[in-house]
């Protein structure tokens, strides 16, 4: 019976370790989110949203410019990234379904999803900042769009593939051309999935800092001109957290809280849509 006991004990130890590992993971989640929440809420104030930055030492500065800048950069990145991504995914799932080209592009996209974002920043600097002669919000949006496209493309491809082929055949039988079938039948069937992909891709790029450092740069004033350098929350967090001033640190925590809440909400919304549309998984 000792052998039996040994097996039981071994099993118990291994499973306890796994449980500890899970607790360890959750511990960090609570620790980090807790800190962001506590420090962030403490630093929240109307001035943060209503005022622009002031020189260190002057009271009452805010990050209005960075909030607006972040939204604009992300919005235009979405405007560029989503159509390209959805159309590209459509090609892979429909016109090129099952072909070698489709498989290669799909694999390359998967790789592109994880490529270091800072490299994309250097790339955009070389093609959109240096030749043009100034940093710009557009360059920042372009960098984020490049990160976004493969994400949207892959989810679109997967979601379109889930739409049963018979649905398309039914539409063909009515004499509809393929593009009409895609737009009116396939997209409709996969809409929730595609939307989730879009939400997740926005969540992915909204927290990016590295590709913005050399592209949209920073601006201490409120600006909506995408042709100019434009402030973003993430770059401001980097600048402020690395800086020596207590007022900067507080604002960096508050900005972190806002951006974390925004991204977590998008992520949760995405999951809710998936669950509502495709059931428990």
């Amino acid at each position: 019976m000792t052998r039996e006991r040994k097996r039981k004990i071994e099993s118990f130890i291994a499973l306890s370790l796994s449980t500890l590992a899970a607790l360890f993971g959750l511990f960090w989640l609570v620790f980090i989110l807790g800190d962001v929440l506590i420090e962030g809420i403490e630093a929240l104030s109307p001035a943060l949203f209503l005022n622009d930055p002031v020189p260190p030492g002057v009271a009452g500065g805010g990050l209005r410019n960075a909030f607006v800048g972040q939204l604009m950069i992300t919005f235009f990145a979405t405007l560029i990234g989503v159509p390209v991504g959805v159309l590209g995914g459509t090609f892979l799932a429909e016109y090129a379904r099952g072909s070698k080209v489709a498989r290669v592009i799909s694999v390359l996209s998967d790789i592109m999803v994880s490529v270091p974002s800072i490299v994309i920043g250097t790339f955009i600097y070389a093609i959109l900042v240096k030749p043009v002669g100034h940093f710009s919000g557009w360059a920042g949006s372009a960098a984020l769009a490049i990160i976004m496209i493969p994400v949207v493309l892959r989810t679109t491809e997967d979601m379109l593939s889930l739409v049963p082929w018979t649905l398309r055949e039914a539409a063909f039988a009515l004499g509809a051309p393929y593009y009409k079938v895609i737009i009116q039948v396939v997209y409709r069937g996969a809409a929730a999935g595609i939307l989730t992909g879009i939400l997740l891709s926005i969540a992915r790029v909204a927290g990016e800092t590295a590709p913005l450092l050399f592209t949209s740069f920073n601006n201490s004033y409120f600006s909506t001109n995408m042709n100019e350098p434009i402030a973003s929350l993430t770059v401001s967090i980097f600048q402020y957290a690395m800086g020596p001033y207590d007022s900067w640190h507080a604002q960096a925590w508050a900005a972190s809280l806002m951006i974390t809440v925004f991204i977590l909400m998008l992520t949760i919304l995405g999951r809710v849509i998936i669950r509502w549309r495709y059931g428990k998984r």
Binding site: P55, P56, G57, G137, F217, N227
Partner: peptide, 23 residues
């Protein structure tokens, strides 16, 4: 619209460099 800026009127001079005189 965004290429020219809604706030339009405000002129901006962009400078960058030394952190020594930043304050």
């Amino acid at each position: 619209i965004f290429s020219f800026g809604i706030a339009g009127a405000a002129e901006t001079l962009n400078g960058a460099g030394a952190s020594f005189p930043y304050p």
